[in-house]
Every structure is written in structure tokens, then in C-alpha cells.
């Protein structure tokens, strides 16, 4: 219905060639003006400025054009290269468990019972809570001297671990926290997809002799495919942007073991004030997000909504 109506409306837009200064058009421009002022000032202009700045040595004092030197430097910057590797590792090892566990969580709460609303609320709360408070809780759990995990290990007769202070364990620990926090989000999306499947399709599968696994394979999986594409894209972008838990829990350490691209941007810009150099890093981050977005548009069919849905 919505698609239909909007489809027609767009056609009219094109064909009628509305003159600029009808009363209606003027009111429309006035209505959208405040938004575009903010949009220009706080989204478009910084984005543009970031590109320009990445070719300068801006350090909040001097500012000269230095061509591609920042980008050349990036390729030789070990901390930055490490952060790229860490960011991709973080994304890969977050997304796979997230999709599997999130789907399992959605299956486990997908029953029409009152108690399930409460269960969903519990599973969603980590996603709703701030990354700062989540980081603080896990910082305690991982604490080598007094944290829960080491106390459990000691009880069982093992020696404790250094967790976030261990160069090999720190990044996996951050991944665990990330997965734990984001499961609720994945669950909600999968749950909606599952509930969109009409019962009759399952009944038909059962009539055809399919068991639980058969029904899942033939009915459920096709139904959750679009959401899975969407999740793949959003979770990738979300992981590429990782900063808060890194800054709070490890500050990139030990020895750059957990530094991420956004963490590098923050450190260069706000502790060394190398604004131009940090801008070049931001451009890299932007390109990563841009590529994922394009892939998602091409294969996920996400701009469907642009044609309007009701």
C-alpha cells in the first residue's frame, strides 16, 4: 500500500516540474531548513573538512598542505597497522559468535508466553546499558587481584590469569565483552524475522514430512536471510568503530595488543594533537564503512525502503 502510493507520488514529482516559488514549496523549504542547517554544520562540513585536513599537518597551530605524506606515514606506522589488524580480528571473531548465539537466543525466547517478555528484557538489557557501565562491570570480573574469574579459578585449584593485562588474552577478553553486550540486539532482529514467518509454512513443512531440523532448514533459514545480511553489515560497521571499551578497559594495551582504528584516531588527535594525521586515519575508517555499506546496498537490497514501505 505504502509502496504503491509513494511510487505514484515520486512520479508526479518528476513530471510536473513544480516551480521553485509556489507557496507550498516555500513552506517545505522552511520546514526542512533547520534540519539541513544542523546537517550541514555537524555532518557534511566535518566530513568534507576531514578529507581536506588529511592532506595537511594540522596540529591546532600550524597547518600546511603536505600532499599524501600522512597516508604514506600510515603505511609505515606499526601502531596503526596493528590497529587495523586488531579491528578486523575483533570484527570477525565478534560477528560469527554474535550471529550464531543471537539466533539461538531468539529461538529460545520465541514462544507466545508472558514470561518470555521478561526473558527478552533480561537478554536485551546488556545492549541497552551504556558501554561505560558494561566495561566497568567486566573490568571487575577480569581484575587479576580481586575479580570474579580469578576467584573461581583459585577455588578450583588453578592459578589465576592476568586477563586484560595479558598480551594474548586482552583482545579475546574484549571480544567476549562485545559479544555479551550485543547479543540482545541480534536476538531482537532475529526474533522479529522468526515471528514474521506464518505458522502455515511450518505446518506445510510438517505435512511434507520435515522434522524440526528440516523445517528450520527449509522455512526458517530463508526467512532470516535478509536480516542476516543486514546484521552482517551493521555489526561490521559497529565493530569497525570500536573505541569506548578499548579506551576504558585497556587503553589499547598491553603493547598495542588491543588498539583499534578509532582508538588510534583518538590518541593521535587528542593526546598528540596531530589533527591532520588523525584525519587520514579517519578517512581509512570512512572508506571501510563505505565499502561495507555499498556491499550491503548491492547484495542486501537495503534501499528498498527508499521506494517506500508501509
Amino acid at each position: 500500500m505504502g509502496t504503491f502510493r509513494h511510487g505514484i507520488q515520486t512520479n508526479i514529482d518528476v513530471k510536473k516540474r513544480i516551480p521553485f516559488l509556489t507557496g507550498d514549496a516555500v513552506s517545505a523549504y522552511l520546514l526542512i531548513l533547520p534540519f539541513f542547517v544542523f546537517f550541514f554544520l555537524f555532518v557534511l562540513s566535518p566530513l568534507l573538512r576531514n578529507f581536506l585536513n588529511s592532506f595537511t599537518n594540522d596540529s591546532l597551530g600550524v597547518k600546511e598542505f603536505i600532499g599524501f605524506r600522512n597516508y604514506e606515514k600510515l603505511l609505515r606506522d606499526r601502531s596503526f597497522l596493528r590497529s587495523v589488524l586488531n579491528t578486523f580480528t575483533f570484527a570477525l571473531f565478534s560477528i560469527v559468535p554474535l550471529m550464531v548465539l543471537g539466533f539461538a537466543a531468539a529461538l529460545s525466547v520465541n514462544r507466545p508466553k508472558k514470561a518470555m517478555y521478561a526473558a527478552r528484557a533480561v537478554l536485551m538489557y546488556p545492549y541497552v546499558a551504556s558501554m561505560v557501565s558494561v566495561s566497568m562491570i567486566w573490568l571487575y570480573l577480569f581484575d587479576p587481584g580481586s575479580g570474579l574469574f580469578n576467584k573461581v579459578l583459585w577455588m578450583a585449584g588453578f592459578s589465576g590469569s592476568d586477563w586484560l593485562f595479558d598480551e594474548k588474552l586482552a583482545l579475546p577478553c574484549l571480544i567476549v565483552v562485545n559479544v555479551w553486550k550485543m547479543i540482545g540486539y541480534v536476538m531482537i532482529l532475529y526474533l522479529a524475522a522468526l515471528q514474521g514467518v506464518p505458522q502455515s509454512q511450518y505446518d506445510a513443512a510438517v505435512v511434507d514430512g520435515a522434522g524440526f531440523l528440516g523445517a528450520t532448514w527449509h522455512v526458517t533459514l530463508p526467512a532470516i536471510r535478509p536480516v542476516s545480511f543486514f546484521l552482517l553489515a551493521t555489526l561490521s560497521i559497529e565493530c569497525f568503530k570500536t573505541f569506548e571499551q578499548v579506551r576504558i578497559m585497556t587503553n589499547g594495551g598491553p603493547l598495542d595488543a588491543t588498539t583499534t582504528i578509532t582508538h588510534q584516531i583518538y590518541m593521535r588527535a587528542f593526546s598528540e594533537f596531530k589533527m591532520g594525521y588523525a584525519s587520514a586515519m579517519s578517512v581509512v575508517l570512512f572508506l571501510m564503512v563505505f565499502v561495507v555499506t555499498l556491499l550491503n546496498l548491492k547484495f542486501g537490497g537495503q534501499l528498498e525502503e527508499d521506494r517506500g514501505n508501509g
Binding site: L41, F42, N53, I265
Partner: peptide
């Protein structure tokens, strides 16, 4: 589609 992390530095300068 523009993540705020990308515009963090220029927005601060601005």
C-alpha cells in the same frame, strides 16, 4: 551511513 567516529576530529576542530 556516516559514523560519528569519522567526523570526531574535524567536528572537534570546528
Amino acid at each position: 551511513m556516516i559514523p560519528p567516529q569519522v567526523t570526531l576530529v574535524p567536528l572537534f576542530i570546528q
